[in-house]
Every structure is written in C-alpha cells, then in structure tokens.
Amino acid sequence: MQPTGNTILITGGGSGIGAALAHAFHEAGNQVIIAGRRQAALDAVVADHPGMAAVTLDVEDAATIPTFAQKLIADFPGLNAVVLNAGIMVVEERIDLKIAEATIATNLLGPIRLAHALLPHLQAQPASAILTVSSGLAFVPLAATPTYSATKAAIHSWSLSLRAQLHDSNVEVIEIVPPAVQTDLMPGHAENPNALPLADYIAETMALLRQQPTPPEIHVERVKYLSEAAQRGEFESVFRTLNPH
C-alpha cells in the first residue's frame, strides 16, 4: 500500500482505533473519509482535521450499503482504499441470540457487504487496498465474548481467501490484527493497564503499514502472544491463561 496520496474510507472512524487511524492517515497526506453511526462523534473528529470528511453509515443495515457506496464513489471518485474497522464487542455470559446476530451483522456481514459494493470501483483504480481489521482473539478466543471472537476468526479467514482471489489484481488485501488496546470498545478497556496504549498501538501499526512492500498482515509485537500461539505450540496454555476456570 502506498503510504500517502490515497483517498481512504475508514468505517468506525468516530472513536477508538478508527479515529486514531484516521488521524494518522490524514497526517501522512491522505484524503480521509470517516464513517460511523454517530454523527456527533464523526463531527468531533473532523473538527480537529481540516480537509477530513465524514459520512454516516450503519454497517449493520444491509439495505443502505449499495446506495452509500454509490454516493461515496460519486463524491470521492479517487477512492482507492477502505479500512473495514467498524465493530462491536459485547460480553455474552450465555448464548444471547440478539447480541450474537448484531455482532455478526456488524463485524462480519458489514465488511463483506461493503467490500462487495466497493470492489468494482477499487479494481478500476491504478492501485488500491482493502484493509480488514481482525483481532488477536481471531487466533485464541475469549470465552466471555464468543461471537466477537468468532467473527474476528472469520474475518481472518475471509481476508486470506480474498487476498488469494485478488492476487493477480491491483487490489492489496491487508489484515490489521490488534491486541487489546486502550479504547472504549468495551467498558473498562480504556483504563485497562494490561491493554496497549492507543497511541503506541497506532505508531507501531503505521510503521508496519509504511513498509514497502506492505506486509499482508499487520501484527504488532503485543498481539503475537495470541496470534502466534499455535505456531509456538502454546495454543492450549495461552487459551487457559486467557480463559481461567
């Protein structure tokens, strides 16, 4: 992925990792469009970054995505990158169908639907990129958030397949794999001393994204405890540590 001169859509750009990536990409000389459900949160981010744009989008609402994509392309014909970052994470003490279905719709179906809507346009650009956002929990699940972990494992698998399908095209597929980061994704995360500070996470992630060629998967050092557990032959011990009985 070229480090500057892109026109990038970032979903879930009103807070957390999405907002921080928007700031970093904007500072690097890219045109950034942030999307999310909460207009006030989007407006607050844009206010600090002259030239950044904001559009509302609920990725859980399948019916609105084709129209959203058409208007986005009309307004930003140079669009050549999308960061599929929007997501929710909710504790499920037992099977909760309402939470599970909302999580799947937002974290998995949303990215797939939006990528499908934008892919023809991205394929027509000289160079473009689809950046998915999975999680260290794609590799070792957290039992307290089973559907979140499952959707992130699915995003990892989908990214591998999409990359293979597009290997001979001009569309790069890059998977960003965050560890626990100090954001408001869940209550208490922003104050969790065991989570990676957001600024540190973004700095390390952007440094990896600037590498040429860009790695197909962006694993900061902190996430490798989870993402490389199976490779080290330590999956069971890491799973038990993450999910003590």
Rank of each mutant, 00 (worst) to 15 (best):
S161N: 14
L42E: 05
P3A: 11
A105K: 01
I174L: 09
H156E: 13
A230Q: 13
D75F: 04
A117T: 02
G5N: 02
G78Q: 11
A138F: 07
I33S: 00
A102R: 15
P111I: 07
Q2R: 15
A124P: 12
N80S: 09
L142K: 06
T205I: 09
A115M: 09
A150F: 00
R38G: 10
T214V: 14
L42C: 05
A230H: 12
P141T: 02
W158L: 10
V32F: 08
Q2W: 02
G188F: 10
S227T: 14
I95D: 12
D58Q: 04
A154L: 05
L185M: 13
K224V: 08
S157W: 04
A129V: 06
Y225C: 06
V177T: 14
S128K: 04
A190D: 12
N80Y: 03
L198F: 09
A190C: 08
H189K: 12
Q70S: 14
E175W: 02
A143Y: 11
A195W: 07
N194F: 12
H156K: 14
A129P: 05
Q31T: 12
I65T: 03
Q123G: 15
R240Y: 07
D43H: 09
I104A: 11
R37K: 12
N192Q: 06
G136N: 06
L162F: 10
L142W: 13
L21M: 15
L198E: 08
Q182C: 07
G78Y: 00
L42M: 07
H49S: 09
I202T: 09
T145L: 10
A203F: 06
D48H: 14
P141D: 05
M206R: 15
L242W: 10
A154K: 01
Y148R: 00
L108D: 01
P50M: 05
L114A: 04
L122W: 06
S159F: 08
T214P: 03
V45L: 08
G36H: 03
L142E: 08
I65L: 04
T4R: 14
P244R: 07
T151F: 01
S169W: 10
R37S: 02
V46S: 10
N243C: 05
V238Q: 05
D58L: 04
E175G: 06
V181P: 07
A86W: 01
G110Y: 02
A129W: 00
N85C: 08
L142N: 12
G14Y: 02
V140M: 09
N107G: 04
V59D: 01
V55Y: 10
V82M: 01
S227W: 11
L57M: 05
A41N: 15
N192P: 10
E93P: 03
E191P: 08
L114T: 01
L108H: 03
